[in-house]
Design a protein around this nucleic acid. Structure first.
Length: 362
DNA sequence: TATCCGTGGTG
DNA sequence: TCACCAAGGAT
C-alpha cells in the first residue's frame, strides 16, 4: 500500500513516545471543562460530536445542555416527534444532522437495545456517523484506539510532522488517519485524540499559533523550521462570485455600436468592451426607456439576444445581451465611442460566439 | 470529486 | 465590509 510507505517515511525519525506523553499530559492538565466531558456516556459523546460538526464549542454548549435535558437518553430521543427534535436544534444549523441523529438513535434503540455500538462496522453504518464521528465515539466513549481525524487534527499534524498534502482533498484525510493509527496511544486513546483537537483549538490555531505555549513544541517540525504559519496547505476553493450584468449593444442612427474603455487599472485594464450595467443597478420602472446618463444618451432597450458567461479565476460574469437604440442625446464621454461593426470583423465578437470574450483588445 | 448544507464569530 | 471560517457527512 502506497500510503503505508509514506506513513513509515513520515514517522521514521519522529519521537512518537515523547509526543504522545507530552500531549496527553498537557490535555489532562489543561483541558476545558465541557458538559460532554462530565462522563463517558456514549450517547452524550455522540450528541456532542454531531453538534460540534462545523460548529464552535461556545455555540454548542447551551444547545447540548438543553438537548440532554429534553432527551436524556436514546429512548427519549427515539420517542420524540421529529418536529420536537428540530425545535431543540433550532438555530444550530445543518438541520439534517438532527434528523439523521434521531433516525440513527431510533435504529440503535430498535436494533441494539438502546446501546450505542462499540465497533467500527455497526457504528459507521448509522446515519450521520462518518469516519470522524465514528472514531471520536469509539475512542472517547469506549477507549478504543481508533483515529478521529477532523480539521484540527489535520492542521496540527501537518505542522508537527511537516506534511504538505492539501488538506482540502479528501484523500488527505486518509493519510492522516493512517498516521494517527500509528501514533494514537493504546493506553489512552481518548486523551490522545481529544488532546490533538484541544491543541488545535487552544494552541495550534489556524492563523497565529501560540507555539511558545505549546506542549509538543520540541517535536514540531514546522516550528523547528519556522514555517508553522505556512501549514497546513489548503487550496482555497473559494467559489467564484457571480456578477449578473446587462450587456448593451447600443446602436446609433448610423448603425454604429457603442463601446467603452475600461479603467486603466484593475481587472482587464484599458480593454474595450460593450457597455455593461450591473443588473442590480437597473431600475425596472424606467425600462425599456432608459436614460443612459453616463454617456449623455437616451436609449431604448430592444429584444434580448443571448446570454454570455465569462469565467475568471475569482468571479463570473453572467451577461444578458440586449440590443438598444439611441433615441436622443449626444455621446459625451472620453472613454466611450461608437464603432462601425464591420471594422470589428477580426475581433472577438461576443454575441456570435458564446465562448468569445466580451471585451475587445486594442 | 465537487457541492451543498447554517450560523455566528473574526481579522 | 467580507472572506474565511468551526470537532463533517451525504450525495
Amino acid at each position: 500500500m502506497k500510503n503505508k510507505e509514506r506513513i513509515e517515511t513520515i514517522l521514521e525519525y519522529f519521537n512518537a513516545e515523547s509526543f504522545r506523553d507530552d500531549l496527553i499530559r498537557w490535555f489532562k492538565e489543561e483541558q476545558r471543562l465541557l458538559p460532554w466531558r462530565e462522563n463517558q456516556d456514549p450517547y452524550r459523546v455522540w450528541v456532542s460530536e454531531i453538534m460540534l460538526q462545523q460548529t464552535r464549542v461556545d455555540t454548542v454548549i447551551p444547545y447540548f445542555n438543553y438537548f440532554l435535558e429534553k432527551f436524556p437518553n436514546p429512548q427519549a430521543l427515539a420517542d420524540a416527534e421529529e418536529q420536537e427534535v428540530l425545535k431543540a436544534w433550532e438555530g444550530l444549523g445543518y438541520y439534517s444532522r438532527a434528523r439523521n441523529l434521531q433516525n440513527a438513535v431510533r435504529e440503535v434503540v430498535e436494533e441494539y437495545g438502546g446501546v450505542v455500538p462499540d465497533n467500527p462496522e455497526e457504528l459507521g453504518k448509522l446515519k450521520g456517523v462518518g469516519p470522524y464521528t465514528k472514531g471520536a465515539i469509539l475512542s472517547i466513549a469506549y477507549d478504543t484506539p481508533e483515529p478521529a481525524v477532523d480539521g484540527n487534527v489535520m492542521r496540527v499534524l501537518s505542522r508537527i510532522l511537516h506534511v504538505e498534502d492539501d488538506i482540502s482533498k479528501q484523500s488527505t484525510r486518509k493519510l492522516f488517519e493512517g498516521l494517527v493509527g500509528f501514533l494514537v496511544s493504546r493506553h489512552d486513546p481518548s486523551s490522545f485524540n481529544q488532546g490533538l483537537m484541544e491543541l488545535g483549538a487552544l494552541i495550534c490555531t489556524p492563523k497565529t499559533p501560540s507555539c511558545m505555549l505549546c506542549p509538543v513544541q520540541n517535536n514540531c517540525r514546522a516550528f523547528e523550521q519556522g514555517i508553522e504559519t505556512e501549514l497546513p496547505i489548503k487550496s482555497s476553493k473559494k467559489k467564484q462570485k457571480k456578477s449578473p450584468y446587462l450587456l448593451l449593444l447600443v446602436q446609433n442612427e448610423k448603425g454604429e455600436v457603442l463601446i467603452e474603455k475600461r479603467p486603466e487599472s484593475g481587472l482587464l485594464a484599458s480593454l474595450w468592451q460593450y457597455p455593461m450595467v450591473p443588473l442590480e443597478d437597473i431600475d425596472k420602472e424606467t425600462a425599456p426607456h432608459w436614460f443612459f446618463g453616463e454617456y449623455g444618451l437616451k436609449i431604448e432597450l430592444g429584444e434580448p439576444i443571448t446570454d454570455i458567461r465569462h469565467v475568471f479565476s475569482h468571479l463570473i460574469w453572467e451577461m444578458g445581451v440586449v440590443r438598444a437604440t439611441v433615441k436622443d442625446g449626444e455621446l459625451d464621454h472620453d472613454r466611450a465611442r461608437f464603432i462601425n461593426p464591420t471594422d470589428m470583423s477580426d475581433l472577438p465578437f461576443p454575441v456570435s460566439h458564446q465562448k468569445a470574450h466580451p471585451y475587445i483588445s486594442q
